[in-house]
Structure formats: structure tokens, C-alpha cells
Write a protein that binds this DNA or RNA. Structure first.
Length: 151
DNA sequence: TAGGCCATCTGGTCCT
DNA sequence: AGGACCAGATGGCCTA
């Protein structure tokens, strides 16, 4: 005699009790099983959707803290990760430099010199003669418009 | 219209 | 057992 005590697809203690015997059991069990499977699939889909939405929220937050250098188009996920990597490496480099220089004053004057020049060009809307990109931008290794996947 | 990016669905695997 | 995570498939939207 067939019972509904069944596969891993079945969650049902309940269905086992109902269907242990009797006419129409097979049909009822299989339709119940399919119904349960469909319900679980829908629930899994919803969870997956929520999970991906959470992931996308995290990407949006990352985009906000990562420099975009005036890109009007939002960075793709891949570009965001690359930019974040480059950003972190640049900051790490700056910190390492700070440690290398003996006096804090020396380090500050080194960097402020660059940043003052940047602000000057920014406010006067002039292009620097030699280096066309701002200092802070130049120290980054990742530029989306130039980036190509190296295989 | 082709290519890039994305959201969603789905089945498999791992973890608790 | 159920949830989290992952990767492949698919279809929609947008842009050059």
C-alpha cells in the first residue's frame, strides 16, 4: 500500500496522517505534493529576490562612497567593485606615505600643495598645463572609461 | 541591431 | 528540514 510518507519534497507530517490509506490517495498526494513544492519554490524565489535586493542596496551604498570623477552614468556593479578596490589601495598608499615621512608637517605640506593646486584650477575653471587630471584622481589606478578586462 | 547590464527564476550545494 | 548562497539560463531595457 502506498502512503504519502515521502521524499524530501514533502514537508508534511499532516499529509502523511491524512493519506495513510483510502481511495484517491495517490492523486491527492501527488497534487498536494506539487502544491507544496510550488509554494516552497515561490517562497525561495521571494527570498532570493530579497537577498539580491539587499546586495543591490549594498552596491548603492558603495557607489556613494566611491569616487566617480564626474561620470554622469552610474557605475556598473563590476566597475563599482574595481573602483572600490582602487580607492582602498590609494588610501592605503597615502597612509603608508604618511608613516614614511618623519614629520607630519612635511607630509601635510606635500599633499596640501597638490590639493591647493587642484582647488585653484577648479575655482578658476582652468585646465592645468601639464597634468590634466587632479592629483587625487591621478593617484587612482582604476578609471572605468579606460578599463578593459585583462584575460 | 548587437552588446552590455540587470532582474528574476531555478536547481544544486552547503550550513545550521 | 529549511535557509543562504551560488551559478546558469532567460528575457527586458538601454545605448552606440
Amino acid at each position: 500500500m502506498k502512503t504519502c510518507n515521502s521524499s524530501h519534497l514533502e514537508s508534511g507530517v499532516e499529509s502523511e496522517l491524512q493519506c495513510r490509506s483510502g481511495a484517491g490517495c495517490v492523486a491527492k498526494c501527488s497534487s498536494e505534493r506539487m502544491e507544496n513544492a510550488a509554494k516552497r519554490r515561490l517562497a525561495a524565489n521571494a527570498r532570493e529576490r530579497r537577498r539580491m535586493q539587499g546586495l543591490n542596496t549594498a552596491f548603492d551604498r558603495l557607489r556613494k562612497v566611491v569616487p566617480q570623477w564626474g561620470q554622469d552614468k552610474k557605475l556598473s556593479k563590476y566597475e563599482t567593485l574595481q573602483m572600490a578596490l582602487s580607492y582602498i589601495m590609494a588610501l592605503t598608499r597615502i597612509l603608508a606615505e604618511a608613516e614614511r615621512y618623519s614629520s607630519e608637517r612635511e607630509w601635510i605640506s606635500l599633499h596640501c600643495e597638490h590639493f591647493h593646486a587642484d582647488s585653484y584650477h577648479h575655482y578658476t575653471a582652468q585646465k592645468p598645463a601639464a597634468d590634466s587630471e587632479p592629483y587625487a584622481q591621478r593617484i587612482f589606478t582604476y578609471h572605468p572609461e579606460h578599463f578593459q578586462i585583462a584575460n
